[in-house]
Design a protein around this nucleic acid. Structure first.
Lengths: 139, 139
DNA sequence: GCTTGACTTGGAGTTAACTCTAAGTGTTAT
DNA sequence: ATAACACTTAGAGTTAACTCCAAGTCAAGC
């Protein structure tokens, strides 16, 4: 599989694929006789894995370390496990934060919904302007 | 409330607070007689709100737009609502992605757990090296 | 045999989001 | 009244993560 296909398949720019390989975020990909990258099944799995992890916000630095450990073989299994556990912990925290923010956003939106209805009423009865700024946004 | 207290209270660096104000991410804060920022209740609410939204990954650009709309008054309520709904949508997607990644991380960790146990057994019975690299990482 | 197009490399440039610096002002403690 | 300190501003510098560029190679088609 050439870089163009891999890029297409996983929706990762070619430049990014080369960059990831260059910095050791994915193990080195074999080249064919003409020197071009030829991605094996294994390489594709790495690309997909890294894309997934990056999408969840795991820092490149940490992932480089993980790949490095992997390439050092089985003595690093324990270390890799600990690395993943630490990342899981941080990911859970981020998800919790985001859920809270989502609830807040939901609440704000319901408030805006009411405000819009209010505005529509006002438009129908333009007399009661005395309501003043019905300033939405309690933050 | 002076900038040092606000910085402390919300755990946002002073430089970041100034930066946020400069770029319009929070409305301009009043200065006292000696020209220093004096944060009112309202300003603090903005700081806290922005911190929360940034923490969930909403881009600064979008938040600047929101603040700008807010300052234009009630005619922008509908627009602000739509902006929030769009951001909510994207936030939900991000949370879903992260949850999937979390599951994957969890799975990998269980695999590593078994691998570690396996390694420990091997250490106890050093004979069966024929098991070969019990290469963890199906990605 | 020449052009076209996909690839290669190392290195430079970009973007978002801070973070720091320099030069200056005002308030407080000795 | 002078030193120490918290603040001010505009602007420069940094970091992470790409993204682009220039110069060159290789295989396929006319």
């Amino acid at each position: 599989m050439m870089i163009a296909e891999v890029s297409e398949k996983f929706d990762v720019p070619q430049d990014t694929l080369r960059y990831y390989e260059r910095i050791g975020l994915i193990p080195r990909v074999n080249r064919n006789k003409s020197g071009n990258r030829d991605y094996m099944e294994e390489d594709c799995k790495w690309v997909e894995f890294i894309k997934c992890m990056r999408g969840a916000g795991l820092p490149i630095e940490v992932l480089i370390e993980y790949v490095g450990l992997f390439q050092q073989g089985d003595e690093t299994i324990e270390t890799r496990k600990r690395l993943l556990i630490e990342q899981r912990k941080q990911l859970i925290t981020r998800i919790e934060d985001m859920k809270k923010t989502l609830e807040r956003l939901d609440y704000k939106i319901t408030v805006y919904e009411q405000a819009v209805v209010q505005t529509e009423k006002t438009l129908r009865r333009p007399a009661d302007y005395f309501c003043g700024k019905n300033s939405v946004d309690g933050n």
